[in-house]
Design a protein around this nucleic acid. Structure first.
Length: 225
DNA sequence: CACCAGGCAAGTA
DNA sequence: TACTTGCATGGT
């Protein structure tokens, strides 16, 4: 097979160029505040955004979208509000664990979290119940603007169809592809991830070929899962 | 009605 | 270490 790109970094930048040229610079930001984004990071685990939005709307309408308010609620009260996001008992437990961690480690301060050495902050997040790679990195990128690349199901599927990944890679393997070959720029990582999300929502889903796909020319999808 | 989206932890061996 | 299962919703 012919290598069409001398370097991985050129290929990754070309993909970004094609996606952002098609979808525009999204300036994507999943929540209105850093704290809302922290909550969203848990609520969105294995769940469609449409359901997550209903859950976060319930928290807002009940006036409890703050770490102090949420920690003062009983398990069942949180669970009933986030019910539309699914897995509500699991997510209530995970959200509570994350809020306790945020209180105990950083006194509910994103400034304190941001000032901590990045790899240490990431390890601490990963050591918190309910926080895996994607959730930790979403918090680091979207709440405290750290240059970490978030890998999600869309990213995995798109990379596989592009022939960059074979599906056997670990989370950190895939993350490393981006972080070793792109400048450590939070704004780039934010928008690149947003491009994968919007592209994954509309294309690269189940159809072998998608009309109008901006990266169709680079896609090696052969119909295999 | 069947099926889909789509992270993490805990149990098993 | 690697594999399997539980968790729950809303939309098609």
């Amino acid at each position: 097979m012919i290598r069409r790109f001398a370097k991985r970094s050129e290929q990754l930048l070309r993909i970004y160029e094609l996606l952002s040229g098609h979808y525009g610079n999204l300036g994507w930001w999943p929540g209105e505040t850093p704290f809302e984004m922290m909550v969203l990071a848990v609520l969105t685990q294995n769940t469609a955004w449409s359901n997550v939005e209903k859950a976060i709307a319930n928290l807002k309408s009940n006036g409890v979208l703050s770490p102090e308010k949420l920690l003062a609620l009983a398990h069942d009260e949180i669970a009933s509000m986030i019910k539309p996001a699914g897995y509500f008992n699991v997510k209530t437990k995970r959200l509570t664990a994350l809020l306790e961690f945020f209180r105990d480690e950083y006194s509910f301060s994103f400034e304190k979290m941001a000032s901590e050495e990045l790899s240490l902050a990431r390890l601490k997040l990963l050591n918190t119940h309910g926080v895996g790679g994607e959730t930790a990195d979403s918090i680091l990128l979207y709440c405290v603007n750290k240059p970490v690349f978030v890998i999600d199901a869309y990213t995995r599927r798109i990379l596989k169809r592009l022939g960059i990944a074979d599906g056997e890679e670990s989370y950190e393997d895939l993350q490393g592809i981006f972080m070793r070959n792109l400048p450590a720029d939070p704004a780039l990582f934010n928008d690149y991830h947003a491009q994968f999300v919007i592209h994954g929502k509309t294309m690269c889903r189940t159809k072998p070929l998608c009309a109008g796909c901006p990266i169709a020319g680079m896609c090696s999808y052969n119909g295999k899962k």
